[in-house]
Amino acid sequence: MFSLILSTTARAIMPLTLVFSVYLLMRGHNAPGGGFVGGLIAAVAFAIASLADGVATARRALVVDPRRLMAVGLALALASGFGGVAAGQPFLTGQWAEVMVPVVGKIGTPLVFDVGVYLAVLGVSLTMLFALSEED
């Protein structure tokens, strides 16, 4: 059941939602937000797209397989932990660079970790969502 209104709105909303999710991810360390909620919001964007235009369209919009996103996210989170090891501290100890970036604040391995969480959560939600909504 295709709805022109839903489809048009979804196309307008989706990029905004995605930008918002990345914004939440980036500012998460200092204001409400973070990788977990950012990933969920991004998943909502694709969920709306799949409801409006079908799963195939949503999949194309995502470009990569969500299962790959899970793997990449998990690997990134894990890899960020070795920053501490390389600096001679325990695994997962945060390492910070002395640069300030607008919105984000300081850059450090916890941000990398959070990006990993973002990707993994997005991958997990969409893997389930797509699996449930696809006819096979």
Binding site: G28, H29, P32, G35, G105, K106, P110, D114, V117
Partner: peptide, 14 residues
């Protein structure tokens, strides 16, 4: 210690 003002997120990622 963790360079973040959002305690919830700092707990989660650090």
């Amino acid at each position: 210690a963790a360079m973040g003002r959002n305690v919830v997120n700092v707990i989660l990622v650090d």
